[in-house]
C-alpha cells in the first residue's frame, strides 16, 4: 500500500465527517418533529404527576432548546455516551452493539452465499453466452431482482412451515435467531443457531444474488472478449485453463467492489427480512425506535450504518487499488 493510497484514505475519511454530522442533524430534526416522545407516559392511566413528567423530560434533554439538545447529544457521543433512550433502563450503546452482532451474522453469511452463487452462475452464463443455460440464469436473476423482499421472505417462511409439517419435525426454524432453551452442549447450540439462520439467510442472499450474478456475467464477458484472453487461447492453452486461470481472476476484481458496497447497504437493508423472521437485529431496533419517537436511538442506528457505509466504501477502494495495478488514486 503506497503512501498515496493512505493520503487518499485519510482525505476520504475527513470528507465523510461533515456528511455524517449533517445527516445526524437532519434525522434528529425529523424524529424530533415526528411527535412527543413522552406521549406514552402522559397517556397512562392514572396520569403520572407533573413531577414525574418533568423528571422524565429532563432525563431526555427535553427541557433544553432543540439545537442545544443536538449539541448535548453530539458532545456525549464523542465521550462514548449515546444519550438517553425513551425506554427507561435501555443503554443505547450496549443495545445497538448487541443488535449489530445479530444483523452482522445474518448479513455476512448471506453475502458469502450470494457471492458464491453469483460467481458460479455469472461465469457459467458468460462462458455459455446465449445458450439455454444463459437464458435460464438470466431469467432467474431478473426474477429475484423483481421480488419484493417481504413477499419472498413470507413465501420462504411458508415453505419452511410446510417442510416441517411434511417431515413431522422442526427442520428449519421460522421465528427468531435462536431458541429460548436449548438442551445439550455446544453442538446442539450450534445446530439450533444454524437451523434458525437457514431461511433468513437464503431470503437475503437470493435477492442480492440477482444483481450480482448479472454483474459477474457482464464483467466476465468483458474479460473474455479482451485481447489477452484471445492471446492465451492462441498460445494453445485449453479453454478451461484460460477461463479459470486467466479470465476469472480479472473478472473477480470489479465484483469485490460491488460486494463491499452492497455489504454496507445490506446492513441497513435487512429490515424487512429481520421483521418477517422476527430477528432482533438493527432493523427491528430502528422500527421500534421510530415508533417510540426515540430520537437518540434512531441517531445511534444512523451512526452505526453511516460508519459501516464509510468503512466498506474504503475497503472497496483499497481492495480495488490492491488487486488492480492499473488503478491509481491521486
Amino acid at each position: 500500500m503506497t503512501p498515496i493510497v493512505l493520503t487518499f484514505t485519510f482525505r476520504r475519511l475527513l470528507i465523510s465527517i461533515p456528511v455524517i454530522v449533517a445527516s445526524t442533524f437532519v434525522v434528529f430534526l425529523l424524529v424530533t418533529l415526528s411527535g412527543d416522545p413522552l406521549a406514552n407516559l402522559k397517556g397512562r392511566n392514572p396520569p403520572p404527576s407533573p413531577q414525574v413528567i418533568a423528571v422524565e423530560a429532563h432525563r431526555l434533554y427535553l427541557d433544553q432548546p432543540v439545537l442545544q439538545r443536538y449539541w448535548t447529544w453530539m458532545t456525549g457521543v464523542l465521550r462514548g455516551d449515546f444519550g438517553p433512550s425513551v425506554r427507561t433502563n435501555l443503554d443505547i450503546g450496549h443495545e445497538i452493539a448487541a443488535r449489530f452482532g445479530v444483523t452482522l451474522r445474518l448479513v455476512a453469511v448471506a453475502v458469502v452465499l450470494a457471492l458464491l452463487l453469483a460467481v458460479v452462475v455469472g461465469v457459467l452464463s458468460a462462458v455459455k453466452q446465449y445458450s439455454g443455460i444463459d437464458y435460464g440464469f438470466t431469467f432467474a436473476a431478473f426474477l429475484f431482482l423483481s421480488m419484493p423482499s417481504f413477499w419472498f421472505a413470507v413465501l420462504l417462511k411458508q415453505g419452511g412451515i410446510s417442510l416441517n409439517q411434511l417431515v413431522g419435525d422442526q427442520v428449519v426454524y421460522t421465528i427468531g435467531e435462536r431458541s429460548v432453551v436449548v438442551d445439550g452442549g455446544a453442538w446442539a447450540q450450534l445446530a439450533d443457531a444454524a437451523g434458525h439462520m437457514v431461511l433468513p439467510t437464503v431470503s437475503l442472499a437470493l435477492i442480492s444474488f440477482g444483481a450480482w450474478s448479472r454483474f459477474q456475467r457482464a464483467s466476465m464477458l468483458d474479460v473474455l472478449n479482451s485481447d489477452y484472453v484471445l492471446f492465451a487461447r492462441a498460445k494453445g492453452l485449453t479453454r478451461r485453463r484460460v477461463v479459470v486461470r486467466h479470465a476469472l481472476r480479472t473478472a473477480l476484481i470489479p465484483m469485490t467492489t460491488v460486494t463491499a458496497l452492497d455489504f454496507a447497504s445490506l446492513i441497513s437493508g435487512a429490515v424487512i427480512t429481520e421483521t418477517v423472521f422476527q430477528w432482533r437485529g438493527l432493523g427491528d431496533f430502528l422500527v421500534t425506535s421510530i415508533n417510540q419517537r426515540d430520537a437518540y436511538a434512531v441517531l445511534a442506528w444512523l451512526l452505526v450504518v453511516a460508519v459501516a457505509v464509510i468503512v466498506f466504501n474504503l475497503i472497496a477502494d483499497l481492495l480495488y487499488a490492491l488487486l488492480d495495478p492499473r488503478i491509481r488514486y491521486e
Partner: peptide, 21 residues
C-alpha cells in the same frame, strides 16, 4: 454532490415515518 450524499444517507424509514404522520 455533498447534498446528494447527505440525502443518500437518510434512512427512508425515518423520513417516511416523520412525513406521513
Amino acid at each position: 454532490m455533498r447534498i446528494a450524499d447527505l440525502v443518500l444517507t437518510l434512512p427512508l424509514l425515518a423520513v417516511a415515518a416523520v412525513l406521513t404522520r
